[in-house]
């Protein structure tokens, strides 16, 4: 519950610390994992975030896609804007696209896919192809 609080006030380091402890007790909890991914991206652990993201969307992509940002006080709409404007620093372009791909999925599946496609141009990670394949049906739904 403390993790939820730190997440709510956007203190991602403290939130990560608490959420990891909560996940140790309840490893299958998707709601914790969903927040953990955002925290990991914001503390610079983008690759670790992507590993978690990949596992989660393979299990249940809708837990992220069905996020209602306003209702859930989700920080992603604010974060993606800041990342796109380079107001939040990223290590390199690949990490930027990975972050955007993950965080956009909480708000807009189309944008998410576009960013994962950009990431795919910079790396040969097969998981990206699989991610795009999972998300694309939802972009068609949106259209």
């Amino acid at each position: 519950m403390l993790g939820n609080y730190h997440f709510m006030i956007r203190d991602y380091y403290s939130a990560l610390n608490e959420l990891e402890q909560a996940l140790d007790k309840d490893p299958e909890n998707k709601l914790i994992r969903k927040k953990l991914i955002i925290c990991l991206t914001q503390v610079g652990k983008v690759r670790e975030a992507f590993n978690q993201f990949y596992l989660l969307i393979n299990e249940d992509v809708e837990i992220i896609i069905n996020t209602r940002p306003d209702w859930e006080d989700c920080p992603c709409p604010h974060l993606v804007k800041k990342i796109e404007k380079d107001e939040i620093p990223t290590e390199n372009m690949l990490e930027k696209y990975l972050q955007l791909g993950m965080l956009w999925l909480y708000c807009d599946a189309n944008e998410s896919v576009e960013n994962f496609k950009n990431a795919l141009k910079l790396t040969a990670d097969d998981r990206l192809l699989h991610v795009i394949k999972i998300i694309e049906p939802y972009t068609k739904l949106n259209n």
Partner: peptide, 10 residues
């Protein structure tokens, strides 16, 4: 012992 956000970021 861990990373900590400052008041300006908050």
């Amino acid at each position: 012992i861990k990373d900590r956000i400052g008041r300006f970021e908050l």
